[in-house]
């Protein structure tokens, strides 16, 4: 059988540092969607205990053991990132492998908020959107999941839109750099 080569959504892409922000591809590892069956929230909380996770409230993401994270992505739905789903969740939630469906980006440094302010119509400044928060919102016209981490933002978009998302963000970085050059 042919040996197929798995490629990441941003293979060959170097980080872009411009406009006071750094944009870089991000490898998140496995992504699993957990969509709770009706009335199973409590049982799922119990089942997630071995990973040191609960079920995240709307707008929240949780850090668990060994790099496992659980990110709220909708009503009774969350993404388990960086870990395999536990056997104990079987029957409590619809579990689907989403790993290849998403492209992830890291956006950091001082102007990261200014970059997103031009694309996302939600207040993402630190006082309104501190580490531990996660939202679903439009990145310009693309559906995105945006997480606030200590070092900045992590942005997930559909893999089919990876290059467009990169282009939008890098273009805003260029705009911010151009504006900064004008006002010196």
């Amino acid at each position: 059988m042919a040996e197929l080569i798995a490629k990441g959504p941003f293979d060959g892409q170097e980080p872009v540092s411009a406009g006071g922000a750094v944009l870089a591809p991000l490898a998140l590892g496995p992504i699993w969607s957990l969509a709770l069956f009706p009335g199973q929230a409590k049982a799922a909380e119990q089942a997630l205990k071995p990973l040191d996770l609960g079920f995240p409230a709307p707008g929240q993401w949780l850090q668990g053991k060994a790099g496992a994270r659980l990110v709220w992505t909708g009503r009774d739905q969350a993404f388990l990132i960086g870990a395999e789903p536990l056997e104990a969740l079987a029957g409590l939630a619809a579990i689907t492998d989403q790993s290849d469906g998403w492209a992830a980006l890291a956006l950091k440094c001082s102007a990261a908020e200014a970059v997103l302010a031009r694309l996302v119509p939600v207040d993402l400044r630190a006082q309104a959107f501190p580490p531990g928060r996660a939202i679903r919102a439009g990145l310009n016209h693309m559906p995105a999941v945006i997480l606030r981490v200590e070092s900045g933002f992590e942005i997930l978009t559909f893999r089919s839109m990876a290059r467009t998302a990169w282009h939008e963000l890098a273009e805003v970085q260029a705009h911010l750099a151009a504006r900064a050059a004008l006002t010196v």
Binding site: G59, G74, P121, V122, I135, A137, G138
Partner: peptide, 8 residues
């Protein structure tokens, strides 16, 4: 669920 959001 999401809080205060723009109409668009």
């Amino acid at each position: 669920l999401c809080g205060d959001r723009d109409r668009r």
